[in-house]
């Protein structure tokens, strides 16, 4: 380091490279995230570079390097936790928008498909399905309402349900 203070670039290069494992160990001891720890090492190297005139050659270099690296690692941790307090990660399964309807896209697609499928049924099938399944009338009541015979209602309802199943992929 004394040589580096005098401007010996080769000695400086050797010193920093030799110190790198030590600095990495110090940073990793504080910071779990490997990329963050490596950033802290680079912060430490920059600080070492800026403070190189404050190093006293009579004293051992190791505690000097370690102390600077510890400080930079702690600073980075603090910044990280400050950032962590302001931001929260967006998870895939969280609601993305506040409007209730905005998150129901899938349901809307499904109901649109169902409407389209119902629209493709014949008039008789649609009437039979509406009276027997949606309004829950008995076959006799449905027959009286629609003017269709009980047998025709049965057949129409059965065919309608079958057609819907086929259309919506429930039956191959």
């Amino acid at each position: 380091m004394a040589a580096a203070q005098a401007g010996d670039a080769a000695a400086y290069d050797r010193l920093l490279r030799a110190a790198l494992p030590l600095l990495r160990a110090v940073a990793r001891r504080r910071i779990i995230n490997a990329a963050e720890a490596e950033d802290a090492v680079q912060d430490a190297l920059l600080t070492i570079h800026r403070l190189r005139h404050s190093y006293e050659p009579a004293r051992p270099i190791r505690p000097w390097l370690v102390a600077i690296c510890e400080r930079r690692a702690i600073d980075r941790l603090r910044r990280q936790s400050r950032r962590g307090g302001r931001e929260s990660p967006i998870e895939d399964w969280h609601e993305t928008l506040a409007t209730p309807g905005a998150n129901q896209g899938e349901e809307r697609v499904a109901s649109a498909e169902l409407r389209a499928a119902v629209a493709e049924l014949s008039e008789a099938q649609r009437t039979a399905l509406g009276l027997a399944k949606l309004e829950g009338l008995s076959l006799a009541e449905a027959s009286a309402r629609s003017g269709m015979s009980v047998g025709a209602l049965k057949v129409a309802t059965h065919r309608a349900v079958k057609a819907l199943r086929r259309r919506l992929g429930a039956e191959d």
Binding site: D13, L46, H49, H53, E56
Partner: peptide, 16 residues
């Protein structure tokens, strides 16, 4: 590489 850059731009400093 960062170390190389720091060492490359090294200038002598007056010791404190």
């Amino acid at each position: 590489d960062f170390i190389g850059q720091l060492a490359g731009g090294l200038r002598p400093v007056r010791r404190m």
